[in-house]
């Protein structure tokens, strides 16, 4: 697998190279947007990690250009943390957005997750009756198995039931009491933290960054929901 890393800061590119090489990836390097576009044309790249603020051609414009020809996963890596920046990045065609300074292990996890999703897209999961999915999150209810981007996740029975309930009703927000009542099958008298703690545990297992969940979203003051 070949990964293109593009940042105008040479040391950052080198550090990412070390981490990716340790995981067995081949790394192609570029130091501005133009180089990145060139590199994509020249090489057979499987995934690109690109910075936003760069000389000549910035990451957002480069992503726009690359998207015209290629559908490889693109992860934007930027010091800009504003929601507006993230939305812009994702809108021009990036698949993921990470902010600097980043945790290198998280970056590797995201790279792997993107690659798994990308390769899996071609070999669609066969649509069984008891398979539920939300984005890269798949629940095989017959096998009581949960995978995230193809990798299996171990959940306790209660965690599994809560997740299944939410995935089955994708997009709908459930309050703590509603979740309690449907999982424990009894009326919630004086709710407590139990459900919230389970939810956090699930998030820690299925999300790369539990504080910025992709699938199991917290709607503060309302409840929880699963999104694609």
């Amino acid at each position: 697998m070949k990964i293109l890393v593009c940042d105008d800061d040479k040391e950052i590119v080198d550090a990412i190279e070390i981490y990716l090489q340790q995981e067995g990836f081949e790394v192609e390097k570029a130091y501005d947007g133009e180089e990145a576009v060139e590199a994509i044309k020249r090489n057979d790249v499987d995934l690109m990690i690109i910075d936003v603020m760069m000389p000549k051609l910035d990451g957002v414009r480069a992503t726009l250009q690359i998207r015209k020809e290629s559908s490889i996963p693109i992860i934007i890596l930027s010091a800009k943390t504003e929601d507006a920046d993230k939305i812009l990045g994702l809108n021009v065609g990036a698949d993921d957005y990470m902010t600097k300074p980043f945790n290198p292990l998280e970056l590797v996890a995201r790279v792997k997750s993107q690659l798994r999703r990308y390769t899996q897209l071609s070999s669609q999961i066969k649509q069984d009756e008891n398979v539920y999915e939300a984005g890269g999150l798949v629940i095989y209810d017959d096998l009581k198995k949960v995978t995230v981007d193809g990798e299996e996740v171990k959940l306790t029975p209660i965690e599994y039931n809560i997740l299944l309930h939410l995935v089955k009703n994708k997009g709908k927000v459930y309050s703590i009491n509603q979740i309690y009542e449907s999982i424990w099958n009894e009326e919630a008298i004086g709710a407590d933290n139990t459900v919230a703690v389970h939810i956090r545990h699930i998030r820690e297992k299925i999300e790369i960054d539990p504080k910025e969940p992709r699938y199991l979203k917290v709607v503060w003051g309302v409840g929880y929901k699963i999104v694609d």
């Binding site: 309050s175 703590i176 407590d192 933290n193 919230a196 703690v197 939810i199 503060w220 003051g221 409840g223």
Partner: peptide, 15 residues
Amino acid sequence: IDFLELLYQTGGEFN
């Protein structure tokens, strides 16, 4: 929003 729900949610994050 429900302040109470939010506190339970926060409690779950912090226990």
